[in-house]
């Protein structure tokens, strides 16, 4: 299905640019052209298709659906809906307050906020195209599990005391349920709007990610990673998570790097740990959440994620190598 992108890359690398096959530069350029065209094509297709379905879903609806459910239902629901509900990171704060105000427990709310950036449909589809469905499904399952366990941990330690006091005092007005899209035209308009908005936001991350991936692919020798990042090296997973914290991109932008690392023989658990860390622990998001969470809870939140990603890394390395 994706041969056309390989052919396009063959043609532009060897015919248009006249590079010699098998050289470092040719390999890097080939990787770059193939991945950029493939990912851009998939992005447009997937965002549009998902947009048609999610035109009915809003955070206000999620709040209504999750409120008042038992924990056995609300946790899985929160992470599942967190993965598909569209909201921009600047809405994290009103969303957080709105959930708590509706009586949704702190743990469930945090589970929603953890799962949301980690799993997104675009990342999953592009990951599947790059490295196969099996790994993509594993990534989703791991992400949902981390969301639930993270939320449960916050609930277990009763961390409500580390939510800023004013949050508990806010009373919400009658929620305006936005009229969802009803006609086909509205849905298409919404989906197309999503393509323009999301594509406009992330194309640069994709280019940077593919650029780094291409450099790794073409110029970094295989032995380098085998030496430092093999499954035998127990420090590789924690290091991958640490490296991922200051790097901020969305999950989609990291995928070319993931692909290049895997092709260089870095084990899957280490790579998934890096991907989760880049996507879910981001400085801008933490600064936004600081408005509602005290520093202790932010630190605990990062700590829980850190441990969870390392566990995921070791687990996958142990199971799949």
């Amino acid at each position: 299905m994706f041969e056309i992108f390989t052919k396009l890359a063959d043609w532009s690398t060897y015919s248009v640019l006249g590079l010699t096959p098998k050289t470092h530069l040719a390999e890097a350029v080939h990787f770059f052209v193939e991945d950029v065209t493939k990912i851009f094509f998939l992005l447009v297709l997937v965002i549009f298709a998902i947009g048609l379905f999610r035109s009915m879903l809003t955070p206000e609806r999620v709040r209504k659906v999750v409120a008042g459910r038992s924990r056995a239902v609300s946790y899985p629901m929160a992470v599942g809906l967190g993965a598909v509900t569209p909201f921009c990171s600047c809405s994290s704060v009103p969303l957080f307050i709105g959930f708590l105000e509706a009586g949704i427990p702190l743990g469930v709310t945090m589970a929603f906020l953890i799962a949301s950036p980690m799993i997104n449909e675009v990342a999953v589809v592009v990951l599947a195209a790059a490295v196969g469905w099996k790994i993509a499904v594993l990534y989703v399952v791991a992400g949902l599990t981390v969301g639930i366990l993270g939320g449960l941990a916050i609930e277990f330690f009763k961390l409500e005391k580390w939510v800023e006091e004013y949050v508990w005092k806010i009373r919400m007005g009658e929620t305006v349920l936005q009229q969802g899209a009803t006609t086909l035209k509205q849905r298409v308009d919404y989906a197309w709007g999503q393509v323009k908005e999301i594509f406009g936001r992330i194309w640069i991350y994709v280019l940077i990610g593919v650029g780094i991936g291409a450099a790794l692919h073409g110029f970094v020798p295989q032995e380098f990673f085998l030496k430092y990042a093999s499954a035998d090296n127990l420090l590789a997973v924690p290091s991958a998570v640490l490296v991922g914290i200051p790097l901020y991109s969305n999950a989609t932008g990291v995928i070319p790097i993931v692909e290049a690392l895997l092709s260089k023989g870095v084990p899957i658990g280490t790579v998934l740990a890096l991907m989760m860390s880049v996507a879910a622990i981001s400085l801008p998001e933490m600064i936004i959440l600081r408005k509602v969470l005290k520093p202790q809870l932010i630190a605990t939140f990062i700590g829980i994620l850190f441990v969870a990603f390392i566990t995921v890394g070791y687990l996958f390395n142990a199971l799949l190598t």
Binding site: P59, C88, S91, P94, I97, G98, E101, I170, M172
Partner: peptide, 13 residues
């Protein structure tokens, strides 16, 4: 102001 925003019942900005 978050309180004012929530007062309008708006959760997504």
């Amino acid at each position: 102001d978050m309180g004012a925003i929530m007062g309008y019942g708006v959760m997504s900005t």
